[in-house]
Design a protein around this nucleic acid. Sequence first.
DNA 1: GTTAACGGTGCAACCGGTTGTACAACCGGG
DNA 2: CCCGGTTGTACAACCGGTTGCACCGTTAAC
Lengths: 338, 338
Amino acid sequence: MTQPVRTAPTLAEVAAAAGVSRSTASRALNDSPRISEETKKRVRAAAKEVNFVPNARGRALAVGRTEIIAVLVTEPLSELFSDPTYSEFLSGITEELSESSYLPVILQASSTHERNRAREHFERRSFDAVIDVSPYKGSELLEVLRELGVPTVLCGQLEGHPYRDVFSTVYSDDEEGGHFAALAMKERGRKDIVAVLGPQDNPAVVDRLRGYRAVLGEDLPDANVIYTGWNNGDGYQAMHQILAREIAFDGVLCGSDRIAAGVITALNEAGLSVPADVSVVGFDDHEIATRCVPALTTVRQPLREEGHMAANIALDMIKGAEPTTSVMHMQLIQRDSL
Amino acid sequence: MTQPVRTAPTLAEVAAAAGVSRSTASRALNDSPRISEETKKRVRAAAKEVNFVPNARGRALAVGRTEIIAVLVTEPLSELFSDPTYSEFLSGITEELSESSYLPVILQASSTHERNRAREHFERRSFDAVIDVSPYKGSELLEVLRELGVPTVLCGQLEGHPYRDVFSTVYSDDEEGGHFAALAMKERGRKDIVAVLGPQDNPAVVDRLRGYRAVLGEDLPDANVIYTGWNNGDGYQAMHQILAREIAFDGVLCGSDRIAAGVITALNEAGLSVPADVSVVGFDDHEIATRCVPALTTVRQPLREEGHMAANIALDMIKGAEPTTSVMHMQLIQRDSL
DNA sequence: GTTAACGGTGCAACCGGTTGTACAACCGGG
DNA sequence: CCCGGTTGTACAACCGGTTGCACCGTTAAC
């Protein structure tokens, strides 16, 4: 009961069936202008007849490209999976690449073991380009990619731009985002602001805070800035701490929409009304933002567009383009929490 | 300011540096017994000298393998991302493959466009094997893989086993799992059971229910079986419906731990105590199970081990092994909700 | 009528490895 | 001294495509 392991038809068979040489068959299928319409038709018919599909291995060797782009994920998958912003971003990448002949594949590299495997395959030139969705400074893999000269796109700004001259970068302007959020608070007349942000060492967090500060100045005192995780629970807990301090405040800037959701819950439990007593602004325009009560005013990060951009830059770099840096613009989404 | 695009060293350069032929160099690096130790040493030194790494494209063509295994994801990424069971399973796969020279890559194929791209790359033989993490009956891609004779492992049982003779299958014995859960209820003396399950068309749901029934018989009447989604909210809502019916029950079998979490919340809100008044058993041994109050008794699905198994079977099939079906065993995890 | 130009096709080399087979050098045995 | 066997290496073919270049026949121009 062995299955019929039809070995795939090769170009030679197509050529024979069409009564032409291998080279003519190749050119015909690649629509070269040097081949007559008549011959092209015959070759195409023959190819269809035997179900010919060019073998990726042979083609890759000949053209010097595998037509595969690796999407490098250096975080643990579970973390990636719990953060829906990535899913949006990845969809952007695959969407864009599906217009081309390139295939995006997700390459997990969280454990040391996985990183070594990934490194090996980079060295073997298994991929034409790499898109790193969560690059961090000092990553060994980035060092390897740099040495190998593999076209690489970093998604997110690295502090000090250590690879600016070799890698392309795509990121959203977090400072601008902070600007928008803070400006909205100011226009609403809020004067005593609290910020519940993500991890202190996160570059996006730093930039957003800078944006807040530029607008609010002393209305956002140092003591009112809390660093925590990205989740509902983190926001909830942080808000409780703030309430316990019994300071006066009328606005909360949040590092993520999930943080904001937790913050709102905590405020409601404390008998404070949003937005009557306190204004809340989130970040990300996560799906949860519309489900909050009241619906959350937030800063939209153009994740899908970032994905598109990253994919396009990768394709350009494969064609030999110089590395570029591309900044995407944030947008304030007005809802009811302000 | 163009970067130094060092073109990678080829085997020929290594051979030249070591003063041997290309074939000898190749055999030396592959540790062939036909080459003298002395020569091997010289070749290895030369290879290290010029930083030689065999080019994947050339090698793939020669050996007829790409050494890449595709992990096919046919669901929308967002769904995949929201279900942490997958992350566990995927980790199992990568863990196991990282012992070999094979590289697992995640291939998203949720949109029609993506599926067409995937199909194309299957036909081009870009991958040595495919692991489908969420196969469904009648999938065009499975049909393609079957026709092409690509080694394929299905994770999950397909109703009617349509591909049993060509594909391998790995799945957990859901009926056995249902058995364990129901048996625990019975031993605890629970007589009036309610089941809150996942979607009715899900094969795992069907099998689990069969397991429940085999043990409980009339203690689980048809009217007490509710089909819903997999999430907290679904469990919460379903429990409210049951409470509204004002029927007597002393045990709830849940289709997932997240459902169970929602169920417990609803029970508590209704003033019922778990496990004093009502016993609750979950499914999956999801991380949430330990965070429930009380900690959830549940059925553990050996996801990581399933991943290991799937990877190993894929490797075997690449070497020519016949398709096999492998059933993993469930395990009751005793905690405090029973 | 000869020649240049041109469109269409095939030969052969090439991409970068692996591998079957031939061959050279060396050994010991008769 | 010749022979068979062993060991170590090189030559060349092969994997399945692409592509530079030579060559062919036809037609247009002189």
